[in-house]
Design a protein around this nucleic acid. Structure first.
Lengths: 341, 341
DNA sequence: GCATCCCATGAAAATGTTTTCAATTGATTT
DNA sequence: AAATCAATTGAAAACATTTTCATGGGATGC
């Protein structure tokens, strides 16, 4: 196959030469087919096929100032929710023919600004921001990028204090927090704790808000315990903490934390759900692998990824957005870790 | 900050102008610092910092014919092992200043070749291949890319029938399978089953081989059950299957499958580990969230990602490899789902 | 039959780097 | 003092596209 022999080395010059047209025509035949006479186009396209020509992405990007590439900025990929969002993102990116550049924030070197500069230098057409540990400085920095660089950004699975300068796709975590708390209250639970994270995540903040609202509404005393996401740490922590507190309901901000808690409870001969109801957030595989099966808020993680990528394509195409803060529907999956009627 | 004002629009010309040197010197100050006089370099670097200059990746790629970008081809990102490998890959990529282009294979459209063509067109310097469901055709295709396109490839967490045309980084899954089986045999288990996947993954194949070797060596009858990775499916499957078989040992090819199995066993009043020992593979979070805690083969997933990225950088730099099939060390974590002395 | 307009095309500029090659400078050797 | 050499720098070419602008040739309108 002569196609393979030269595969990759053929340039637009070779095509132009072989098709007896100019560079411009070849370029047009590829990118603006309607602007070249059908028979010329045909001829050019045949030569392209013949030579196995693929435009050099760099030259193309340089000349057109477009990359058809988006950057996805995520914290720790091993979080189940992040990974699943990536699936949604990648699927939609593929549909719209965008490539995905992945940037994983390093735990230690908090050089997020550095990474963003890199992203800008990479000339991406858009940015998906999945870090829900966002600070005011970071938000401003993002805003600045959007404004100065004209690079559209979408916040995925996070929002920033109801501001819509930067569009976001998420669920209404405040309402979800409220609803799941209501559920336990309606079960008759009184001492309902929320187990949240030490680190300040925007979405966990919202979950807490919803929890607080429900508790106050019911004239119950809210209690938020903050722990680490790491199993060994929080297991120890739970033992210690609940030795001194009486609890009959737990709402964890993540499934894995809820499962961790269930394990500790049962190790202490506390029955779930008879003595204590436990719920999580997300509906990950953990929820279904735990015993008892975990009741939790069902977050459409894949869809959040997919929709935010879709929104980003719209922004990159200068299309109008119906709304800049998009909250997808969530649900509550009642399983065996809570009292169900 | 004037840094932010001009962020991203600054070109090498601006830097050269401000530092009163030529383009070439700026370029050298960045890429070959030793070739420019220390004080000049200092001055240039200051200006770069001052202006927040970042070289345009396209221009750079075009001129240098290097992209400092690698493509990572993965199946379903929601598999815990894949996600964790991404962490390792990204960390090392960052160290060596490579960007990561992510390609997630779609479940249905098996257009892997199409994706690989895309990857080639993207002008990546190297490819990390994480799909352990590799067929002979796919292997040949990869080989062809490596040869014709001169794009180095590394197989991550998979190997292909001991061939080393394409370098690989993994663990010795055959040995791991053998060892974990030996462990159960030494516990005195006789009816040890391996629970593997219906789909043909290279690494599961190796695990099975090791299992078979240990069983045959011990003159026990090997039994391999194949199931789906999906919880709802395999739960049902387990119930049905083990109603008709007597079993005292289970080796699952994934932690989540093992946990699934434990749940089914306990639901049927089979005690773990008294009546039956259960082990998994990988040592994921699932293993520690299950009750009893899961004994499993400890696979250094992060390291596999990190090392394969490191190997790829060597290949991209034309450095020699000590060995083309790299097997990292694995371990066996004894927890409570097996009888330990 | 002439002016006008549009369509298809090509020439050349523009994109922002790296790299080659030549030139300059300053130091060292003879 | 001349010659050699190394270190430093700059000018310009190269990289492979897209895009702008100009041009020639038909077709259309009057």
């Amino acid at each position: 196959m002569s196609k393979k022999d030269r595969m990759g080395k053929t340039t637009i010059y070779d095509v132009a030469g072989a098709a007896k047209v100019s560079l411009a025509t070849v370029s047009r035949a590829i990118n603006n087919p309607e602007k070249v006479k059908p028979e010329t186009r045909e001829r050019v396209l045949n030569v392209i096929e013949e030579l196995g020509y693929k435009p050099n992405a760099f030259a193309k990007g340089l000349a057109s100032r477009k990359s058809t590439t988006v950057a996805v900025l995520v914290p720790d990929m091993s979080r189940a929710s992040i990974a699943e969002m990536m699936n949604g993102i990648a699927d939609i990116a593929r549909v719209y023919k965008y490539s995905v550049l992945l940037y994983i924030l390093d735990e230690e070197d908090s050089s997020e600004e550095e990474i963003l500069r890199e992203i800008i230098a990479a000339q991406v057409d858009g940015i998906l921001y999945l870090n829900d540990e966002i600070t005011p400085q970071q938000y401003d920095f993002l805003l600045n990028i959007e404004r100065e660089q004209q690079i559209p950004i979408v916040l995925t699975n996070t929002t920033y204090h109801e501001r819509d300068d930067i569009p976001s796709v998420s669920i209404d975590y405040e309402r979800a927090g409220y609803e799941i708390t209501r559920k336990l209250i309606e079960e008759g639970r009184k001492n309902i704790y929320m187990v949240s994270t030490v680190r300040k995540y925007m979405v966990n903040d919202l979950k807490e808000k919803g929890y607080l609202r429900a508790m106050e509404e019911a004239a119950l005393t809210p209690q938020i315990m903050r722990t680490s996401g790491r199993i060994t740490v929080n297991t120890e922590h739970f033992h210690e903490y609940f030795k001194h507190h009486s609890v009959d309901g737990i709402i964890a901000v993540r499934d894995s934390i809820a499962v961790s808690f269930i394990n500790v409870a049962r190790a202490n001969d506390v029955r779930v759900p008879e003595d204590i109801s436990v719920c999580g957030f997300q509906n990950t595989k953990y929820a279904r692998l735990s015993r008892p099966n975990l009741t939790c808020v069902d977050v459409p993680i894949y869809d959040i990824g997919a929709v935010s990528m879709r929104v980003l394509t719209k922004l990159m195409n200068q299309e109008a957005l119906d709304e800049r803060i998009i909250n997808l529907d969530h649900g509550i999956v009642s399983r065996d870790s809570t009292l169900n009627d």
